[in-house]
Amino acid sequence: MKPYNGMPAKDLKGVTWRKSAYSNSQGNCVELAELPDGSVAVRNSRDPDGPALIYTKEEIRALVLGVKDGQFDSLLV
């Protein structure tokens, strides 16, 4: 099955979901998994069987670099 935006995360078989070490102990976090084609799936840990959003490696790179650069710090206030 070709991954698509909004597909059930449970249908992404054989992937390893990862979350930040900064996630809280209640499991409220965003999890990411690299897919065989190099794209990255994102899901909400509170709904692990819910929808997954699929991003290209370039889109994830832009997000991570923006976070590291502080471009999203205003969302934490």
Rank of each mutant, 00 (worst) to 15 (best):
K2P: 10
K2G: 01
N5T: 08
P8G: 01
P8A: 00
P8R: 01
K10Y: 11
K13T: 11
G14L: 08
G14P: 02
V15I: 05
T16F: 04
T16P: 00
W17G: 02
R18Q: 15
R18F: 03
K19V: 06
K19N: 12
S20N: 09
S20W: 04
A21K: 15
A21V: 12
S23L: 09
S23G: 14
Q26L: 13
G27H: 03
N28M: 10
E31K: 06
L32M: 15
L32Q: 11
L32T: 14
L32F: 12
A33P: 00
A33M: 07
A33F: 00
A33C: 02
E34T: 13
P36H: 08
G38F: 04
V40D: 07
A41K: 07
S45M: 02
S45F: 03
S45Q: 05
R46H: 14
D47C: 08
P48F: 03
D49V: 03
G50M: 02
P51M: 09
A52D: 04
A52Q: 07
L53F: 13
L53G: 10
L53Y: 14
Y55M: 06
T56K: 10
T56Q: 09
T56S: 15
T56R: 09
K57V: 07
E58L: 11
I60F: 10
L63V: 08
V64P: 01
V64R: 14
V64D: 06
G66D: 08
V67H: 12
V67Y: 13
K68D: 03
K68W: 01
D69Y: 10
G70P: 02
G70L: 00
Q71C: 12
F72R: 08
F72A: 05
D73W: 00
S74M: 07
S74K: 11
L76W: 00
L76K: 10
